[in-house]
Design a protein around this nucleic acid. Structure first.
Length: 890
DNA sequence: GAGCTCACG
DNA sequence: ACGTACGTGAGCTCA
């Protein structure tokens, strides 16, 4: 039996848009409506199994309804741009799904659907209509099922005449009368003022139709009767407007809507473009796929022949043309480059691609050595993808890499540091240098990961080298046009090597110290757990926010302070508010703290210590943070506890790797506020730093209008919070949350602050304006961050972008400065042939291990290099300290 | 794999 | 009215 599924395209697009949060892909394209549409289509195809399928759209600006009634749909607010931009994508999506779309000038989707369902009734065919619009119920019949979206777009309620009657006590045709009486504000259909659904239903249950209601207006008592008489014309017109027109000259045949399944290639391509990663993984694209399409390759082979070089003889081919190599790709498998496996390297020339497996690369023959010499030669220029990562991996394989003059990934990151998936494959697509298969397609993912046979592997890796080579020019050009050449060539590229040195060196972590701390923690955790069970009167998993919420808010009846998307919030802020209700709360806070220490910093860290060396080797990601900061992984050494004494003990485990050496740490004092003073040129702030005042005390003096000796601890605390707020992109709401004060009080603080620091106020206004004008903000060294949401109509999105506009130049410039200091520091250590080693960077702090005899020198040198990294309108200050371990160096 | 929580600057 | 402080990574639970 045939079944035609018709979707009310506009209605569902709106539904999806408002039901889902405003998602966007990495290039800032909004995708929530497309996503909702996609999931709905997939669900419908699977559940309804339609033989025929159609999406109907409204067309043209003037429908015949406007001819009758100028105000029709006048009340509808303009389609938000975030949705408008998604319509072409929705069209593309439907096309990829192989579904017919239909529209006709001057008609709405309703009318098209009305006409088709009328035919269905006459011919006895089955139709399911999917819409978010209740008006559609007038079309319900034995043959026509109306499926209305319920919550969001994921679920629908299905109506045949029986269900319409059950819900409203009306026939489908009476739905028109219902709307005639009650009107519809969203379509600007007036109806009878004051008559809502309840009254309208009462009238219809009594009289049946609008006409009958009007005819008996004199029998209707009181105000209602008057209204009905007064607005009789409006009711008639409204009914007319609510009536779906069912005589559209379609000029189509039933069979034109036959559904034969989706077009896998197109669909996959589109999902990839939209970054629907979960759908890409979950979807079985084979369904409904035509043979010809399946065979179409989704990626390109290398444009040049591929040679695999195993033997010494074979390597000779490459050695002759090393000077012609334009791109090198090193395949490294594994997330952590310190433990990753180097599979091999590909060398691209205009004539040929050469693949050298690791074994051949590491060979002892003269020719293998010549290839390694090429890689390690600082004077032969090389273009690669992800220098930092392959550098680390190659070092562990005893292969040196020098002379890299361009890194495609690093360049792409600088060009748009918020772009999340900067894979070589996506970069190739973005810059139009050819199609490269994603690694997942060649290797599979998760447990299915497998290296393919060598010819396939070699082709893929050679293709990567080819694409890498082709990307260098356009990316270099973009860097130049954006004024980021110095940032790239003089800072980020050299930094990459400095980081690799630090990471390879690693920092010694004393397992014994950690274990000792762990034992004490475990004992206390056990005790706390029992105490919590006793106080709560029930045993449960304290680590489960869900179970904890049930105990606190249901069993013990405490008031929920805050909700999360999925239930009660139980974070520390909430627990602190709940502490007075029951002593168990304090114990839970305590438990949380110790559990975190134990699992993340004791057990987690122990797992990362290399047994052979007793060191941990973090990996700094250079291309992740939107502000230009580094991030640290495997393990993260940028969030080792310090604020609480108990956690701070962890730092005792970080020790020098040589006997008798010391740990030396130097951190910038108030670097972000100093940067702010410089870029805002605020006189007061500059003055404060020229005199090296305690900036929070100074802020308290100015904001509270008191003398230095009148500033108490609480005033200083509040001033400090204001300073943080300034750096983060201040808002009264955020400050009020942080200080636990009212929004009004917070606003007063901010106003007072801006009155005293007028230059800062001016800067905040200017930077937002600049972002709006240019579409991006910059740091002192020209690092950019694009802020597409700065013009969003959505308040939240726009506000977020505005705060980011204020914060990024500050945080980002601070990041620039410490990066400069690191490059300079590495250079000085080399020049002066010092044994001291730079080990860690923690955003505003550098950590070294230093032989005893260099301690005095380094205590001079390190702050000096840090302070001289760049010349600002205010002095930079770095404090240095040293001791036997990282805890001691405070 | 997403959501929550929490460690750092 | 809207309702978040900026930037990260990791461990745990639960679907």
């Amino acid at each position: 039996m045939d079944k035609l599924l018709i979707i009310d395209g506009n209605s569902i697009a709106y539904r999806a848009f408002y039901a889902l949060p405003l998602l966007s892909n990495s290039s800032g394209l909004h995708t929530n409506a497309v996503y909702g549409f996609t999931t709905m289509l997939m669900k419908l195809i699977e559940e309804e199994k339609p033989t025929h399928f159609l999406v109907a759209f409204d067309a043209g600006k003037i429908t015949f309804r406007h001819a009758h009634f100028a105000e029709y749909k006048g009340g509808r607010s303009k389609t938000p741009p975030e949705l408008s931009e998604q319509f072409p994508l929705i069209r593309e999506l439907i096309e990829a799904f192989g579904i017919r779309q239909f529209e006709l000038d001057g008609y709405e989707a309703d009318d098209i659907i009305g006409t088709l369902t009328k035919e269905a009734d006459q011919l006895g065919r089955q139709i399911v209509v999917v819409s978010g619009d209740k008006d559609m119920l007038q079309l319900a019949s034995d043959h026509v099922t109306i499926a209305l979206t319920r919550k969001g777009v994921s679920e629908v309620d299905r109506y045949n005449p029986g269900e319409v009657n059950e819900r409203y006590g009306l026939t489908p045709l009476q739905i028109i009368d219902l709307k005639g009486l009650m009107g519809d504000t969203s379509d600007n259909i007036p109806g009878i003022p004051g008559v809502g659904e309840k009254t309208a239903l009462k009238l219809l249950h009594e009289y049946g139709t609008v006409e009958e209601v009007l005819a008996h207006a004199d029998q209707i008592k009181g105000k209602l009767g008057e209204k009905v008489t007064e607005h009789a014309e409006s009711a008639k017109l409204s009914k007319e407007l609510a009536t779906i027109f069912r005589e559209v000259p379609m000029g189509t045949e039933w069979n034109e809507f036959a559904y034969e399944g989706w077009k896998s290639t197109k669909l996959k391509e589109l999902f990839r473009k939209l970054e629907f990663k979960s759908l890409l993984d979950k979807t079985d694209f084979s369904t409904g796929q035509s043979e010809a399409e399946e065979l179409e390759p989704v990626y390109e082979e290398p444009a040049v022949p591929v040679r695999i070089l195993h033997t010494e003889d074979e390597l000779a081919q490459l050695i002759d043309v090393l000077a012609d190599v334009t791109g090198v790709y090193v395949e490294v498998i594994g997330d952590n480059p310190h433990q990753a496996e180097v599979i091999g390297a590909a060398f691209h020339t205009a004539a040929c691609g050469f693949y050298v497996p690791l074994a051949a690369l590491r060979g002892t023959s003269e020719r293998a050595q010549a290839v390694r010499a090429y890689l390690g030669d600082a004077s032969t220029k090389k273009v690669v993808y992800d220098l930092h990562r392959i550098d680390i991996a190659l070092r562990w394989s005893n292969v040196a890499l020098r002379g890299v003059t361009f890194d495609v990934l690093l360049a792409a990151y600088l060009l748009d540091p918020t772009e999340s998936g900067l894979t070589l494959s996506s970069l190739a697509a973005k810059h139009g240098v050819g199609v490269l298969a994603a690694d997942e397609e060649i290797y599979g993912k998760g447990t299915k990961f497998r290296l393919p046979e060598e010819t396939v592997l070699a082709a893929h890796i050679c293709r990567k080298a080819e694409v890498t080579a082709r990307l260098a020019e356009p990316l270099a050009e973009h860097l130049k046009n954006s004024g980021m050449e110095p940032l790239f060539y003089e800072l980020e590229l050299p930094l990459s090597g400095v980081l690799a040195d630090m990471e390879q060196q690693g920092i010694a972590a004393d397992a014994k110290t950690l274990k000792r701390l762990g034992e004490s923690l475990s004992a206390r955790l056990e005790e706390l757990m029992n105490r919590i069970y006793a106080l709560a009167g029930v045993e449960f998993n304290i680590n489960s926010p869900k179970q904890l919420g049930e105990v606190l808010f249901e069993k013990l009846g405490m008031p929920p302070v805050k909700k999360t998307k999925t239930g009660y919030s139980t974070d520390a802020e909430v627990l602190e508010k709940l502490a007075p209700y029951n002593p168990v709360v304090e114990q839970i806070l305590n438990y949380r703290q110790l559990a975190k220490l134990n699992s993340t910093y004791i057990e987690g860290l122990l797992k990362e210590i290399r047994p052979e060396t007793g060191k941990v080797h973090t990996y700094y990601k250079q291309t992740i943070a939107a502000t230009g900061r580094l991030s640290s992984q495997y393990p993260n050494l940028q969030n080792i506890p310090i604020r609480m004494e108990e956690g701070r003990q962890i730092r005792k485990a970080f020790v020098p790797s040589e006997p008798g050496w010391h740990i030396l740490a130097a951190d910038y004092s108030q670097i972000e506020l100093r940067v702010l003073a410089h870029i805002s040129k605020d006189k007061n702030l500059i003055e404060a730093f020229l005199h090296d005042l305690d900036i929070h005390t100074k802020t308290a003096m100015d904001v509270f209008g008191v003398g230095q000796d009148q500033v108490d601890a609480n005033m200083r605390r509040q001033a400090k919070a204001v300073n943080f707020g300034i750096v983060y992109g201040i808002s009264d709401y955020g400050l009020s949350q942080n200080l636990n004060i009212t929004r009004k009080e917070a606003a007063a603080f901010i106003e007072q602050y801006f009155a005293v620091f007028q230059g800062v106020h001016q800067f905040m206004e200017d930077i937002v304006k600049e972002a709006r004008q240019d579409g991006y903000v910059s740091t002192l060294l020209g690092r950019r961050r694009y802020l597409p949401d700065i013009t969003a109509s959505n308040f939240n999105l726009r506000s977020f972008a505005e705060r980011t506009a204020m914060n990024t130049p500050i945080q980002g410039t601070a990041a620039d400065i410490i990066k400069l200091a690191m490059v300079n520091m590495a250079e000085r250590l080399r020049q002066e042939k010092l044994q001291s080693r730079m080990l860690l960077q923690v955003h505003d702090e550098l950590v070294f291990e230093v032989p005893e005899h260099e301690v005095a020198l380094m205590k001079q040198l390190v702050p000096e290099v840090m302070e001289q990294a760049i010349k600002l309108d205010v002095p930079l200050r770095a404090d240095v300290s040293e001791g036997l371990d990282w805890y001691d160096a405070k």
